[in-house]
Structure formats: structure tokens, C-alpha cells
Design a protein around this nucleic acid. Sequence first.
RNA 1: GCCGGCGUAGCUCAGCGGCAGAGCGGCUGAUUCGUAAUCAGUAGGUCGGUGGUUCAAAUCCACUCGCCGGCUCCA
Length: 641
Amino acid sequence: MQLELPDGDSIDVEQGTRVIDVAYDIGKGLGDATVGATLDGELMDLRDEITREGTFEIITVDSPQALEITRHTAAHVMAQAVKGVFDDVELAIGPAIDDGFYYDFDMGHSLSEEDFDAIKEEMENIVESDYDVERYSMPIDEAREYLEEQGEEYKVELLEEFEEEGETELTFYRQDGFTDLCRGPHLQSTGQLKHFDLLDVAGAYWRGDEDNKMLQRLYGTAFTSQKDLEEFITRRKEAKERDHRRLGPELDLFTFHPEVGPGLVYWHPKGAEMLNVIKDFWREKHREAGYDFVSTPHIGKSDLWQKSGHLDYFREDMFPPMEEENQEYFIKPMNCPFHIQIYQSRTRSYRALPLRWAELGTVYRHERSGVLHGLLRARGFTQDDAHIFATPDQVKDEIIGVIDLTFDILSAFGFDDYEIALSTKPEKSVGEQGKWDKATESLRQALEELDLDYEVEEGEGAFYGPKIDVHLEDALGRLWQTTTVQFDFNLPERFGITYTGSDGREHQPYMVHRAILGTLERFFGILVEHYKGAFPVWLSPLQAVVLPVTADNNEYAEGVAEKISDAGIRVEARTDQDEQLSRQIHEAQLEKIPYMLVVGDNEEGTGEVSLRLRTEEDLGPRPLDEFIEFAKDKIDEKALL
RNA sequence: GCCGGCGUAGCUCAGCGGCAGAGCGGCUGAUUCGUAAUCAGUAGGUCGGUGGUUCAAAUCCACUCGCCGGCUCCA
């Protein structure tokens, strides 16, 4: 049997040879370092037998593909260590994940970070002992008996599930005295695990179901090189430094006042300024794209929310009602029912469609207390909402229009990497099949025509319609959900909205609900983290600051600031402080102000300003007008600096 | 909502049964200074809240509110 190797050579092996034996045949060094292989790209355990021909690649401890295997074994090593350190530990599951691995335990002792050192030390011992990781299998009944005897009731539950799926034999992995029901693949021996760390401890429901018992989840990570591990730790630290919840108050942009109400944002002057820049830009873009603007109330009677279905499906996310003359009023969690009121205020002809109605609509949702997360998950937020009402033959072009507008807007903020998902009809849904097909197809065609890569997520659509979601990637490579484009078959049906077609008959329009930034709050939070608070000039609340070298230059500084301000640039002269220049620069740096203009006797004599960028570059003196032109260009170009 | 951790000055934190502390920031004064922190003085507190244990509670206990990390949720 021929196996083709990555270097182009091929080797002859007998059917049924194990991966590890092939590796040792090639060389002992390779064999010792082997942790698995891929056959035609498919991951194999090193203990697997090769049963067919194909492109064969050995994965060694140092290969990037070894990551998953390494982490999986790391999870076992950690579990063994926890069992070694504490008594009465029951194992649940312990998979490798994107950033590392975890293991869920049911145990009497309540884990905390104080236990990390002891667990890590025990892990080091297991690694140093370099135990072989053996694989073996057992008939399912024997396995059940074994697990029951071990008191591993969670594993028994898993086993029963495998049994239902028709499995008759189960694989186990064993190292030293530690045995775990596991599919693999795993490393050869615990000594191959070298670069790992423990990260966090948290609660997690068994099987992710909140009706089940809460287990203790221990998170860790492992890499194939020390450098990667260190980079990962650094990136975590970097993410912490970018946390908008820290930067926001620090830069005087916004604060929360949980004693007044958790999840509600207070925008300070600088934050509000920036928010207004975003809103102005958003309105301009929407006007250009043919949207009209509407504005609707914040509360509505329960009848409306009953009719829209919110009281049946969304009530627990709504704030409790207030009563007025025996009527219940609810504060709006969504804008759509209100836009529908406007639609229904008169009859609509096909000639008037499509209607594109946009509103920066502030809504309130009673998010469960544990999910709040600064601006990214708040209880009061402003959606950059719009509803499009269209005829069937307009739908596709409307979707293309929305997607075009999306990338036009997002790229202006410096986001150029996206992941797009198309979610199709779920099991439970409303609306005719024909409409689902038509709508889903229009979403697909729009993506195809725009030549965009996307993933189809079957059955992940909302019950009321298919959707496209856009996740944008930030400077740290993290993905954030912003844009959503959703068809809605529910509300048109419930409210019975219609238009008169060219045939003189009544038809139900397609309704598309879409938000591009998502919510202003969330988008703002993403901007803060993406730019680490050092915003592009056009967004910066304060774009320039004039710093007098001594108080003698104050008058000149004021004059300079006035001219800059007259040019429409947001500027401030720091003439009320009387601090040393280096001190003023220090403060301006911390405020991340894009342009610092130093004015002393030299500049005052020549009518110039000395320009320093927040990137610590001193660009030297230049005429004031030249700076103004420079700054205006940068603002127009939406340049970073 | 659930599990765990944490709430001390505006911020970052020390103190962990016996007088409430530091640095930064604020304020006042001096300094008039050329590209990331001048010097001196000074004010600032219901130790998240309520109740309890104790001769004595920031410190120990219970409850509660909030924050943080996850889980679940994100029609």
C-alpha cells in the first residue's frame, strides 16, 4: 500500500500498520516526536491503523496541527492532577477548545485560583514522569460496569448516549493510574506535553443545560512551543488593557452607575461628541442610500405587544409594565411594531415600495443580571435600526443594497475583515415555505453576486425568518457580531400589513429588519477595544490640543485654537494649567489626543505651530494654515492620524 | 438566573479583631519651564448596604445590592 508523503516521496506500508510504527520506520527521532498524523487531511491518532492509501503526514510535537492533540492530553493530565490533589472528584467532559482546553468536575472542594499552584505542580510531576498514554477498548457493558464501579456517573450518562447511537465498543485512554472514557486522539506520553498553563475556574452546567447541576470548570491552555504560549498570555493581557469598561471611564467617555441601574450608560461630553460624529455619518450614509427617517415613542400599550407576540415570546426580557388608567404600558424592547404602525397609517401601493425606514431607536431590555458586560451587553441601547418593506421582485436588490451599505459604513470605521453567516429555516418557524425559499434564496444570491465568502448555518435562522449576520474582526483578531439582516414573516402576518399590487389586489409585503452597526453602544465598545482608545482623527472627541510652553504664550495659544476651531476642528488650548510642557504632553498622551501643537516663543514669532503626534513623533514647526489643511485632509480621509 | 471570586478616598491598592493608610489625581502656593509626570503644603472615608457575634468589627457570620470570570440566554 502506498502512502504519499508531503515531500513528494511515497512509502510502502502494509495494510493495518499503525501510524506510530510508520513514523519509527522512517526514523527513531521522528517516532519519538510523533503525536499523530493526517491521512488526506483527516486527523488520526498515532495508535490508529492505516487502512487505505492517501496523502500521509506525520504530526510531531512541534507541528501546528499538534495543538488539538496536545490540548486534549493536557486536559487529561489536568484531570489526573485534580484527582491527585483532591478527593471525591467525578469527571464530566474535558475537550480541547479554540484557546486551550477545559475539564468539568463535580467535586466537594470548591476550586479557586489559590489551588492553581498545587494543581500545576502535580501536572508538572505527571509530565516529568513521562507516562505512556495507552489506548484500549472495551465492550460497552464491560465499560458500564467499570465506570459504575469507579463512581463516574457522568461518564455512565455519556456511555448511555453512545449506546443509543448504536456503539458497542468504547475507547479509553490510560496514563499512569488515570483512565478516561475518550475518543482521542492523544499524545504518546505525558512527557510530550511541555507548554501549558491554567487560566480560569468557572461554573458550567452539566451538558450546558441550566436545569442540570452546576459543575466546576477549570480552563487551561497548551501550546506546541513556549513562544506561542507566551504570545497567548501576552494577547490576553493586551485584551485586558483594551477593555472598554476600563478605557471608557479613563478617557472620560462614559460611565455606568449601577446603584442607579445596572446596564444603563451615561455618556459624558466626550463620549457624546463621538457618538454624534457616528450618528451624523450614519444619517448621511443612509440618506445617500435612499432611506427615510422615522422616529417613534418609547412606550406602548400591552395590546400592541400582545399582537406583535412579544408578550408571548419575549416578556422575560422586557421591563415590567407601568400602569396608567387601567392600561399597561411597556417600554419598547424593539422598534419594529412601531414602524408597522406607521406603515398601517394609510394604504400602500406597490408603486410606493420599497419603503426604507430608519431610526436610531433606543430600546430597553431586561437582560439577566449575569450577562451584562459594559457597552457590549447593556439594558438600554440604541439600535441603528431600519425596516424595509418590499415586493417579492424587489427583495434581492434590497438585500444587495443593505450589504453594500454595510461594508461602506463598516470600512469607514477601519474594519475590513469579516465573517458572514447565512442562517436558514429552523425546525420551529412561522411563514409559508414559499416565502422562506424566496427570502433565503435572495440572501444567498445577494452574497453570491457581491462575491462574498459566507458560511451557511442550517436551521440557525430566527423562527420568523432567515438572516445574514456579519461578525467583524478587530485588531486582536477577535470577532464581534454587529450587522444583522433578517426577514420577518411573523409581524406582517400578525399585523396583517398589505400593499395594493398592480393587479389591484392586496398582497403582503416582505419585511426586512436590519441593523448595520448593531447598536451604537456595542459598536462604540468595539471601537474602543479595536483602537485601544486611540481613535482615528475624525472620531476623536478632541482632535487637537494647543500646548503653550510657558504662560507667556497663552494668548497666542488661544488665538491658534480659535483659528483651528473656526476650521471645524475640535480643539482645546491648555492655557488654564500653567504646567511644564513635558507634563502637558504627558497628559495629552494619556488622553490619546491625535495632534499636539506646541507653541512657544519661537512659534509665536513666526506664526507657526510645532506638531507632535500621539505616536510620539515630533514633526517640528510649520505654518498654522498648513496644519489646518493637513488636519482637515486627514479628517476627510478618515485617516487614523 | 446559576457557580466561583471580589467590593476600603475620584483611581490603583495596602491594612484582615484594638486610633482609617499609601501612591496617583484634586485643591492652595511657589516655580516660567521646549516634546511622557517640577517642588512644597493641604483637603478628601457611613471601609457597598442591613442585621448579627464581640468589651471592641473594615477585619468574623448571615442576608442583600453591585462588579468581575464563566455557564445559560442573546426574540
